[in-house]
Simulated assay, not measured.
Amino acid sequence: MVNPGPGILLIAEPFLKDPNFSRTVVFLCDHQDEGSFGFVINRVFGHTLNELMNDLDELKLPVFYGGPVQMDTIHFLHQYPDLIPGSYEVLDGIYWGGDFETAITLIKAGSIDTTKIRFFIGYSGWGSGQLNDELKEKSWLTAQATRKLVFHRKADEIWKESLKHLGGDYEMMANFPVDPQLN
């Protein structure tokens, strides 16, 4: 297990009961004493970008459920720091935010590959010490993120792929039932 910090994946323990985070993978963007935040990267939201925002009729891009906090905000991760000003490097080759209008203009112009940008509604946040407490309770497994996992083309495979990425006994967890009592 690696310590939490920017660029770390929080992989929900197989039997985590919280419906907001059951079988999720969160990409941490920041982790400090005051709190932490990131985005659930493996749960597609029920609406596309054009359905959530005005004037984006042609942008039927998937939007991911970033987490239960501020569900009225749109965020994005991308791989285009030279094209999208104001972005923050979370991990080598993975950037958070930046100028939203520029990102949209580049997408409309076909200047960026839409598999290298991902939109989120809301985010996952933890107050001071909260994430550390959840880690002590073993609610989360931690692993170093990779671009392949963060921008994986099949969101429903990210949780299992993240466990496989950990290797060893964790690979077996990928096949555990959601509720072992129903087995």
Rank of each mutant, 00 (worst) to 15 (best):
N3D: 14
P6K: 14
P6M: 04
P6Q: 12
G7C: 08
L10H: 07
A12G: 05
E13F: 09
E13R: 11
E13D: 13
L16D: 09
K17S: 08
D18T: 04
D18V: 06
D18H: 05
P19G: 01
P19V: 09
F21G: 03
S22R: 12
T24R: 04
T24P: 03
V25A: 03
V26N: 01
V26P: 00
F27G: 02
F27P: 06
F27C: 08
L28I: 07
H31A: 06
H31W: 02
G35P: 08
S36W: 04
F37S: 00
R43L: 08
R43M: 11
R43Y: 03
R43F: 04
V44M: 10
F45R: 01
G46A: 11
H47V: 00
H47Q: 15
T48F: 07
T48M: 12
N50E: 15
E51F: 11
D57G: 13
E58N: 14
K60M: 11
P62N: 14
G67A: 04
P68R: 02
P68M: 05
Q70P: 01
D72I: 11
T73L: 13
T73G: 06
I74T: 07
L77F: 04
Q79H: 01
Y80F: 15
D82R: 15
D82V: 07
L83S: 14
G86N: 11
G86K: 12
G86W: 13
G86L: 13
Y88G: 01
E89G: 10
E89D: 07
E89M: 15
V90G: 02
V90H: 06
V90F: 03
L91A: 09
G93Y: 07
G93V: 01
W96I: 03
G97T: 02
F100H: 10
L106S: 11
I107Y: 03
G110M: 05
I112M: 09
I112N: 07
I112F: 09
T114Q: 10
T115Y: 05
T115C: 02
I117L: 06
I117D: 02
F120A: 06
W126S: 08
E134T: 01
L135C: 05
K136S: 04
K136M: 03
K138T: 05
K138H: 12
T142M: 12
Q144I: 10
A145S: 14
R147W: 00
L149W: 05
F151W: 02
F151D: 04
R153L: 07
A155Q: 07
A155S: 15
A155N: 06
D156A: 14
K160S: 12
L163W: 03
K164C: 05
K164R: 13
G168S: 13
D169T: 01
Y170V: 00
M173T: 08
M173Q: 12
A174Y: 05
N175W: 04
N175V: 01
D179C: 02
Q181M: 10
L182Y: 10
N183P: 00
